[in-house]
Amino acid sequence: MSRLARPAVALAVVSLAAARPAYAELQVRMPQVDYLELEFEHNGLVTFDGKGSQLNHAQSYTNELGYGVTPWWEIELEGELSSGGGQHLTWNAVTLENTFQITEPGQYFFNLGFFAEYSQSTLRGQPNSITAGPIIQKELNNIFGIDTLHTLNAMSGTTPTRPPACRSPGNRLRS
């Protein structure tokens, strides 16, 4: 995540997160690339539900290593671990993610990017998957004295346990 986001109050809302035990990899993606920057990103999600439910204490974690190869292309290698409630964590998949920055932030009415990933399952019998789609972002500065950032991911994928297409909106106040 960009260093600029650290002081911001994040109000990210990720939709469609409850279809599987946990989805730490479901996140709002930004259309910007940090050229020449090496980044490590860790995401974790634990869900709580009624006793005996598969969702109770289900866990999901991702660890990513990314690098801005060019001013418009960032590549990330991700490992995914997850478990259902009361189960041990298992290594699910290795994923190669690509973010393409199409427009310069603030140049046009929208900031535009494109995301594409290939996920290789490490579990026997589980299919590999491809997910891709545009990232659309709108900066609104000085609206009643507040700067905000609104981001929409419109992803389609081949993962059978997920919907064929999903939208992940994220809204962030900027300080």
């Binding site: 960009s2 260093r3 050229y35 020449l36 001013p71 603030g106 500065n141 000085n142």
Partner: peptide, 28 residues
């Protein structure tokens, strides 16, 4: 290389050595 960065302007951009980049800011 250098990196132009500003939290107040909401921008960060690497400027490789010997090159020029364009950063769009505002309206302020």
């Amino acid at each position: 290389p250098a990196e132009f960065e500003s939290g107040e302007l909401h921008r960060e951009k690497v400027v490789p050595g010997g090159q020029e980049v364009v950063v769009f800011i505002g309206p302020l």
